[in-house]
Simulated assay, not measured.
Amino acid sequence: MILSEVAASGQYLHFTSLHLDRDVFDITLFGHQLGLKWYSLAYIAGILIGWWYLLKLLAQPGAPMARRHADDLVFYATIGIIAGGRIGYVLFYAPEMLARPLRVLALWDGGMSFHGGAIGTSLAMFYLARRYRLDWMRVHDYVACCVPFGLFFGRLANFVNGELWGRPTTVPWAIVFPHTVPGGFDPPRHPSQLYEAGLEGIVLGLILWFFFWKTRARYQPGKLVGIFLLGYGCARYFVEFFREADIQYLNNPILGTPGLHMGQLLTFPMILGGIYLIATAKGREGRRKPFVDEQPAA
């Protein structure tokens, strides 16, 4: 009640005053409404900038694949991100959609799961490595360094959409998001989307940048992807304490409790896997095979 009255008093920034729109543009053409959403643009920007950065990494000594493999990887990874992200969302957050399978294809209805997208992307990399006889773990290492770009833009898009907001708070930088409480005053909340953009995008990206460019981590298979898994897992687990539980779990006595949110439970395998990969990476350095591009001459 106190938070609601404070929010109503106008002491906090109201999200509507930012005049943000989910659509970059929206036009009607031949009777059909067409548009580009910020969330879609975030995916495109993350993939393209990640591709550009991957090529920079591959230009350094010790690369596990050639430029032509990276070009193919972008195609396979894009499919993995979209398919895995959507399937993961349905399985982890909205299993009721399985009763109406066509809803699964309606990407605008519901959302995407990072954990599902990560699994889909990993499967795409496994396929690429098997097809071209590449070291799949080292391919994962290089791609892991590029993922924070997509996480950063994705969380910014979540903010622009006014979704995945945080828990009620009275911190000075709180924001009043609309329609968060049915039939009542909307309390000021943590802008948890921006917390995630900073931790999962900027901080994690800088950590991976340091280990790739300033250490021998790229010569120790599994170390960079381990750092990514551990870093993302810890960042996501921390931010979930400030983020409202997903609406379908909001009143759940277990998954609605901070510390046990679905997003936090899904980080446990990532954290444990990351610790294992980091701890064992040095022992794999001696088994690293130099990549030789066997593409036949024209």
Rank of each mutant, 00 (worst) to 15 (best):
M1S: 14
S9M: 13
G10Q: 11
Q11C: 15
Y12F: 15
F25W: 09
F25A: 10
F25G: 12
I27A: 12
L29H: 06
Q33A: 13
L34E: 13
L34H: 14
G46F: 06
I47W: 03
I49H: 10
L54T: 05
L57C: 08
Q60E: 15
M65F: 08
R67K: 15
R68M: 13
H69Q: 13
D71V: 11
F75V: 15
A77M: 08
T78L: 11
T78K: 03
G80R: 01
I81R: 00
G84A: 02
R86V: 02
L91W: 00
F92T: 01
P95A: 04
L98R: 07
R100Q: 14
V104T: 06
L105Y: 13
A106E: 13
L107E: 07
D109C: 00
G110Q: 04
G111A: 02
M112W: 01
S113A: 12
H115R: 05
G120R: 03
M125S: 10
F126H: 03
F126C: 07
Y127F: 10
R131E: 15
R133P: 10
V139T: 04
V139D: 00
V139P: 03
V139N: 05
Y142A: 12
V143L: 09
G150K: 02
L151W: 01
F152C: 11
F152D: 02
F153K: 11
G154Q: 05
R155W: 05
F159N: 01
V160S: 06
G162V: 09
E163P: 05
W165S: 03
W165D: 06
G166F: 02
R167E: 09
T169N: 05
T169S: 08
V171F: 13
V171M: 09
P172K: 12
I175G: 04
I175N: 05
I175A: 08
V176C: 04
V176K: 09
P178G: 08
P178D: 10
P178W: 09
H179V: 15
T180R: 04
P182T: 00
G183P: 04
G184Q: 10
G184D: 15
P188G: 04
P191K: 09
Y195E: 11
G198D: 12
G201A: 14
V203R: 08
G205V: 06
G205D: 03
I207N: 01
I207E: 13
W209H: 12
R218G: 10
G222P: 02
G222H: 04
G222Y: 02
V225K: 09
I227M: 07
L229G: 01
L229C: 04
Y232G: 04
C234F: 14
V239N: 00
V239R: 01
R243Y: 01
D246L: 03
I247Y: 15
N252Y: 05
T257W: 12
L260Y: 06
G263S: 12
Q264K: 03
Q264R: 02
L266W: 09
F268C: 15
M270S: 11
I271P: 03
G273F: 00
I275D: 00
T280H: 09
G283H: 14
G283P: 10
G283V: 06
G286T: 15
G286H: 13
G286Q: 13
R288Y: 13
R288P: 08
R288S: 11
K289V: 08
V292M: 07
D293L: 01
E294N: 14
E294K: 14
P296T: 10
A298E: 13
A298H: 11
